[in-house]
């Protein structure tokens, strides 16, 4: 197996590990960001073909990489960016209301 795929998997689960393990809200968002990036990287890796060129056909090329995953990656980037913006806004709000960034202390809702 090629190294890039291994990296993708490690990044994916590194992010998930951060989301599960870390107590700091901002770190959790960092984890989300890393998972997003790993998925985008996976998309780009899927589209890549050895020796291919970018899908901008100003000339006739022999081998062109797959444009679909790249388009999907763009969509995923934008969605991820807006998600992270909302998350961070909520983190700020939580900090203002609860005075903490520790995830275990935001627990008014329970039971």
């Amino acid at each position: 197996m090629e190294l890039p795929y291994v990296v993708v998997i490690i990044l994916f689960y590194l992010g998930i590990y951060t989301i599960i393990m870390n107590k700091n809200l901002i770190k959790i968002v960092v984890g989300v960001n890393i998972v997003e990036s790993s998925l985008i990287l996976l998309l780009i890796l899927i589209s890549f073909k050895l020796g291919g060129t970018a899908p901008i056909l100003d000339r006739k090329y022999e081998l062109v990489v797959d444009p679909i995953p790249q388009a999907l990656a763009l969509t995923a980037i934008v969605i991820g960016g807006s998600l992270i913006a909302v998350m961070l806004a909520l983190v700020i709000k939580i900090y203002k209301r609860y005075g903490t960034l520790n995830v275990d202390e935001i627990r008014k809702l329970r039971g």
Binding site: P55, I56, L57, D58, V64, P67, I68, Q70, A71, L74, T75
Partner: peptide
């Protein structure tokens, strides 16, 4: 469109 990513993004999908 020459840029296929754009054509996928704005036309096909």
């Amino acid at each position: 469109a020459i840029n296929l990513v754009t054509s996928v993004l704005y036309d096909y999908r």
